[in-house]
Design a protein around this nucleic acid. Structure first.
Lengths: 244, 244
DNA sequence: ATGTCAAATTATGCATCCGTAATTGACTAA
DNA sequence: TTAGTCAATTACGGATGCATAATTTGACAT
């Protein structure tokens, strides 16, 4: 929250992904500036940054609009994320994990194990799971020895649901959540085993499967409910949601 | 070349990758502005954009410096590029190539075939080969149906030697160039066959091998000469060049 | 009522100015 | 000689004003 530009980016990004800004509405330098109480100069930087992140689309001469994501877009972004995280896991298996990575990953696994061994889960447990998931994935990406992987991931990491931490809860789907967490945990264990065993091929392919899981299993285990949930956040185009 | 920011980015990027700016020198908003005859406002935007591209590093409070790339960095960027282009090729094989893609790719193959069937190559042929190579790779990436692939590639595409077009010529290495072009052409043919045969696995794995080729084969077929050449461009750190 | 043209509004891009923070360099004291 | 403090320069972030381009609106004519 130091500079106006940084906080503007954070602020606007939050408003966009939470659907607090009407998708239809145009955003200009002035309107964004007024909204956040800053002048046009930092507002312009913030908008152009969000455009390069892919969250805004520039309407030449008429401001920006929020980029509408279709469900297909989310799947495509996930595909890229899976592949990138896959090479991160593969690299880590080749190199051997650092002490730092080992500590973080084993901590994450301990956290998720504690959660799935319970009978029922509350919102609180889901939040902890998300945190653990975030730790697991960033430990692998950050210590894989190839900065370009993390750099490329940053671009698509801001798209909701795609990010590792965004293990979005679906209302009234506690059982389905539990199932997803159990599956996720088991995959974490398997991938970590592959890494420790220095098996890059297995680590890569398992991570590739796993990183694509949130969106794939959303369809597989939950079905339309997930898409409908996404729609309400304004992230997904109405048109993409199956008619009921 | 319309706005000052755009031309400043292009200008500065060119100067950086061509080694026209001393790597040691600090770049501030004012110095960049003076250099290009623009004020600090567009200079600031340009610098921050180049930073997000990974070509500059921000020295908090003291301007920017040119990011030094090690040979290892180039290899890592290539690794990411290979994987991303791999999924593009795989997707194209799954979907079946569009008419547009087919035309572009077959044109590219015809161009490279014409070149390698000659006895000797001049600078001119090498330039044509680069163009054909560029056509081939961008046809696959642009028509693969996943925009995020191209978007992610843009980030690392600016790193010299990594970009498909950057099939840099090494002085006095005409024979080695010829070999690389022949190998490259044959891989293009093979990948295209895999795509047309709707074999995503083969298309992906071959493309992954092929996209990593420039830097891998540089070592394999040319050896130290290549690294020394890179050094003279200022792209690669002196320290990385093997002692002779 | 519709189409066309002009004026006004809107939005952007860029330059300049100001306030602030940080670094550097010089001077003094131990 | 060295260390510490203070001042000056440097650099940045942000606000504002102006020029330009584009879009929209409104008026007028057909």
């Amino acid at each position: 929250m130091s500079t106006a530009v940084e906080s503007a980016v954070t602020e606007l990004r939050g408003m966009i992904v939470n659907g607090e800004l009407p998708i239809s509405e145009r955003i200009t330098e002035s309107s964004a500036g007024n909204l956040l109480g800053i002048s046009r100069t930092p507002a312009r930087s913030a908008l152009s940054q969000l455009e390069s992140e892919g969250l805004l689309i520039k309407l030449e001469g008429r401001g920006y609009k929020i980029r509408p994501f279709s469900f297909a877009d989310l799947e495509k972004a996930t595909e890229v994320r899976s592949v990138l995280e896959g090479i991160a896991a593969g690299r880590l298996a080749s190199m051997g994990p650092s002490e730092e990575a080992t500590v973080a990953i084993e901590k994450s696994i301990a956290m998720t194990e504690a959660i799935i061994s319970r009978d029922a889960v509350t919102k609180r447990e889901i939040a902890v799971y998300q945190e653990a998931n975030e730790i697991y994935h960033s430990a692998i990406v950050d210590t894989c020895g190839n900065d370009f992987v993390g750099q490329s991931l940053e671009r698509i990491a801001n798209i909701p649901i795609i990010a590792p931490g965004a293990f979005t809860e679906v209302e009234g789907m506690a059982q389905a959540e539990m199932l997803r967490m159990t599956v996720g945990h088991s995959q974490h264990v398997i991938i970590w085993d592959a890494i420790r065993s220095r098996d890059p091929v297995r680590a890569e392919s398992m991570m590739r499967e796993h990183a694509g899981a949130p969106i794939r299993y959303a369809k597989l285990f939950i079905g339309d409910g997930y898409q409908r949930k996404l729609m309400t956040t304004g992230i997904v185009n109405r048109e993409d949601v199956p008619k009921t």
